[in-house]
Design a protein around this nucleic acid. Sequence first.
DNA 1: GCTTGTCTTTGATTTATATCAAAAATCACA
DNA 2: TGTGATTTTTGATATAAATCAAAGACAAGC
Lengths: 232, 232
Amino acid sequence: MHRCLVCEIRDQSVCRAIDDEDLVVLAKSSKQLSLPPNTTLIEEGSAATAFFNVTAGTVKLFKSLPDGRRQITGFADVGHFLGLTNAGTYSFGAETVDTVQVCRFMRPQLETLLADYPQFERRLLAEVTDELAEAQEQMLLLGRKTARERVASFLLARMIHRPCQTTGEENRVSLPMTRVDIADYLGLTIETVSRTISALRRDHIITGTDHHGIRVLSPSRLRGLASGQENA
Amino acid sequence: MHRCLVCEIRDQSVCRAIDDEDLVVLAKSSKQLSLPPNTTLIEEGSAATAFFNVTAGTVKLFKSLPDGRRQITGFADVGHFLGLTNAGTYSFGAETVDTVQVCRFMRPQLETLLADYPQFERRLLAEVTDELAEAQEQMLLLGRKTARERVASFLLARMIHRPCQTTGEENRVSLPMTRVDIADYLGLTIETVSRTISALRRDHIITGTDHHGIRVLSPSRLRGLASGQENA
DNA sequence: GCTTGTCTTTGATTTATATCAAAAATCACA
DNA sequence: TGTGATTTTTGATATAAATCAAAGACAAGC
């Protein structure tokens, strides 16, 4: 009995491309790791030797400038595959946000899998295509949206992508990352993020005082804001 | 004698995945089109039925907000493949910048090609991976760079990617797009782009008065600026 | 070769967000 | 449970880039 066979998130990841009878190959190709918060998974510019499949928690992906300015390009959560690159080195860094579980594939094993299972490659293409569409959406946000629109877009995206109904509360949005991370993701400063969240609370669009979670009171107004419709 | 066999840019595009003897299949799967400047290739949100391979000229890809704000997410030139999406509709628009030649694939033909030629899919994965890396670099630009750094990055990227040494002039950069397009690509206004280019000229980092081309005098200073090293 | 419209540049002013500063809340750990 | 460190919030001020405005340069068509 190997772990891929009992993996609960298999159908949320590229691993669903592999049939049950071949799962043992997958299990042997990868190694499961559990990582504490703020662990470096990928060092920007280092040799691209490993690939990761996130099975629990959230990973932040980012690029930096020499003087320390940083742009988080995405948050990778359950099911996300990380590390693909055409160059021999990673063009981005990756760090855990909270406690994270990943399956790590080393390059030779991954290449064997890709060669042996065309459906695996097909799934990877679909995943990268999806990530590209998300990146384009984020470019629109970074280049053309106001601070209020950016924060609204962020909260909305998390509400839609991450239905954390486990608490029973309706429209609850969990924010495991710090304000610094949110600011670096939205191209703002922490002060602006904080002020904007406070303003949305004041306007009764969201509620909740917990720093790492809010509740959306008016999804429709949030949606309006996120798409730049108004200032309401 | 079909056109793919004599195609001069085949090895710059995904088509290099297809062997010479199978090229006739490729030629039959696609249709060559010649398009004047400012032609809409892809309407944002329309059904994704066609895919394009650019064989000459430059295409701009963009996303818009309801009130008309626009973000150009990339310029696709020779060899670029356009139109992939997981949803049934395009999440972005595409318009020609100058006179453009494309080979158009309709969805069923493309799917047949993908199924029959795994190397074709492999090439596509590499191309999308590359585009994602570029998108991440652009997110860093949009979220964290100053106007001066953005313009420097843009000019530098075009100098490196598009060596237009045909004119004989060293380090010549061609800018077929308008200031509006450059501004919408860099997340700035046309006035800021214009002022910044003038400032770089004043600082003897670039030269040339032609609106659609400049010459880089100091690639090293431009590189420094683009990576945020200084203000020189 | 002139005229008309478009694109680009330059200038003056405004503004959204950054920066600087400090208080309040939360967290970690003894 | 208390204490110091960290994170978040709020406030005052500064600033880079946007906006508003107009002049110059260029391109296309007659």
